[in-house]
Amino acid sequence: MTLAAAPCFGGEVSGTAQVQSGPVQNAVVWLEASGPSVGPQPKVVLDQRNLAFAPFVLAVRTGTTVEFPNNDRVFHNVFSFRDGKKFDLGMYPTGSVKRIVFDQPGLARLFCNIHPNMAAYIMAVDSPFFAVSNEKGAFTISGVPPGTYTYHAWRPGGQPLTGSVSVDGTTPLTIRWQ
């Protein structure tokens, strides 16, 4: 990993996630923060449509309730057994919603026990400051007070990265997997 520098523009940390071949979509970047809680996100959805999860990678704050609507005409059976939050929602039909509280930090690897090509990730972080990179590898973390933070980064198939970032509003944060 290479850290170019640290940034902040009006309380935002912006940057890009990259591998050698180019930008990385669906990288999760978060800052360690032990400040006052802002509470979980109000409503977060991991959709099931066209025999796929959407989004493929979801980042939430610990304590957040994630909704799993089934918008396909077939049954789905979402489960996560390997690490992070472990659960099995069982089969449920079209138009129905099930919910899970992600009450502990960590990575949950989600599958459908009926459809082998369905997979997704939910990263629960114990911080209000996090973001997921877009198709250009870009991410923005808003509302970050000035200061120095330890950051963490993760992407599907990659090793977790850790570094330090000073939020001073000068240079974008570049996260690079070798």
Binding site: F75, N77, F79, F87, D88, L89, G90, M91, Y92
Partner: peptide, 12 residues
């Protein structure tokens, strides 16, 4: 009939 229990047991 389908039945699904959160403990990971299902029947249909």
């Amino acid at each position: 009939v389908r039945w699904a229990h959160p403990a990971g047991v299902q029947a249909r």
